[in-house]
């Protein structure tokens, strides 16, 4: 029973010492550091995605307007201009 209590105390002490050592070395900032290091990658991907979304949007917009006019040509009504 006494041996079990000593092991438990040693384990607790190890955890406390290890935690304090890691915190002293700045391990608490690991997630923040990771975010900072990964930020450029995210920004590059977002930039490329934005470029292709905007260009694709332009193509879709033209296709929709062209389709509307072509549908109007098949009907008989005058154009709305929009």
């Amino acid at each position: 029973m006494r041996k079990k209590g000593l092991s438990f105390s040693l384990a607790i002490a190890f955890v406390l010492v290890a935690t304090s050592l890691l915190m002293a070395q700045g391990a608490g900032d690991i997630s923040q550091l990771a975010r900072q290091n990964l930020r450029p990658y995210w920004h590059v991907f977002i930039a490329y995605i934005l470029v292709w979304l905007i260009l694709f949007g332009w193509v879709v917009s033209i296709a929709r307007r062209l389709g509307r006019i072509e549908r109007g040509l098949q009907g008989s009504g005058p154009p709305s201009g929009r």
Binding site: S61, I62, R64, R68, I69, L73, G81, R82
Partner: peptide
């Protein structure tokens, strides 16, 4: 757009700029 509106009304239609999606 311009050709179609000219054929219908005889006057050019407003530009389609800014319309659509």
């Amino acid at each position: 757009t311009v050709e179609r509106s000219t054929a219908f009304a005889g006057t050019p239609a407003p530009s389609v700029a800014g319309g659509g999606a």
